[in-house]
Design a protein around this nucleic acid. Structure first.
Lengths: 205, 205
DNA sequence: TCCTGTGAAATCTTTCACAGCT
DNA sequence: AGCTGTGAAAGATTTCACAGGA
């Protein structure tokens, strides 16, 4: 394996592989071929093999990939082999939905708290997660939390983000419609749900 | 302008442009240059010009693009120039959050109902939107709704999807972790929020 | 025989540089 | 002068085809 630049698209697919692998593991399969994996995910098999080949040789010819081993290897690649703590900012409907979303577990994330600025909400709980004051940024520093999910109204998004970065956050999942300005050392990924819906009609019929 | 295949990535960006244009319109700007637009969205200007050029010549040299006119033109391209009705399936935390999300308005979507199968929830309201029985698929047919946002627990996602398609849905925004199997005539886009979070640690530091 | 790993080709997307309109 | 529209080049990603190990 020569050195090659790893495509961003490859990285984007790795969590998909993890998700599928979790299902195989539950079902007790110990090996999985790139063909089966591709079928289940709606991809094609050379793509999966190529994706994995950027990081090493994980499969056995004639057999496929060992489910549990590959799971662990992908976790290491993605740096989620240890549980990562994250905070949700904004205890609105979306923030609460995210905080209680079990899917994060699959990737080894745990939601440490929800922060909000409404005195009415502070102190309440969403599932097992407590709503704390957003002014408690010391909380983030103390717990060495590096990840934040921003789900506040758009007009406060940049302001909140600036504060988060001061508190030591270096990775942000932005659920608002803002284009957040952050220093280079901070990584942002944005999801605009309406935008995804926005392209559907174009492709329909 | 010769015919050229329109990149999917171009389509994906059009809603972003709409979002930014809505802000300019509110601020009373009547013209916007590709340079400004690019700055605000974190893109570069030739990309924006190229994207738009696939569909025609919308700008005025020396001036830029007329905000309201370009807005309308992009809406037409995306086929969202008339309000599109959508239903949300699943009245859990995420489903309710989505149903009450104002962002859909920007792209001309309106949420016609939330469907759920829990008798406890049916009849209640989320904001102004009523929760209906998921068995009421006639509702979708009668109102000629083509778009559905699926936010049910993963194990029911495929089953619900099959029913939706029978009721005439041809575009699905899939918020579950399932890879939905649908006939070719149906378009699906999937968002797995945890997956987006899953790639952040890789890029951090 | 089955299925991986991987260069090389094909395809898709972005960037560049500049002609040309206002 | 300023900013668009666009062919052509560069770059990124996917697909292909097949060599080779289990």
């Amino acid at each position: 394996m020569r050195y090659q630049k790893i495509p961003n698209e490859t990285i984007r697919r790795l969590p998909m592989y993890l998700r599928a692998l979790a299902v195989y593991s539950e079902n007790g399969s110990s090996y999985i071929s790139s063909e089966e994996l591709a079928n289940d995910l709606g991809l094609n098999s050379p793509q999966i093999r190529k994706d994995l080949s950027y990081f090493g040789t994980f499969g056995k010819r004639g057999m496929g990939y060992e489910v549990d081993k590959l799971t662990e290897q992908i976790r290491v690649i993605l740096k989620i082999d240890v549980t990562q703590k994250a905070v949700v900012i904004g205890a609105g409907r979306l923030g609460c939905a995210l905080a209680s979303y079990e899917g994060f577990g699959t990737y080894g994330f745990s939601i440490a708290a929800i922060l909000d600025n409404s005195p009415k909400k502070i102190g309440k709980k969403v599932g097992k997660i407590k709503i704390e004051s957003v002014s408690k940024l010391a909380f983030i520093k103390r717990k060495k939390i590096k990840l934040a999910i921003v789900a506040v109204p758009a007009q406060f998004a940049q302001e909140v983000t600036d504060k988060l970065i001061k508190a030591g956050i270096t990775g942000i999942l932005n659920m608002t419609v803002c284009n957040l300005k952050v220093p280079k050392r901070v990584t942002v990924r944005s999801i605009d749900i309406a935008m995804e819906l926005g392209v559907l009609p174009y492709y329909m019929k």
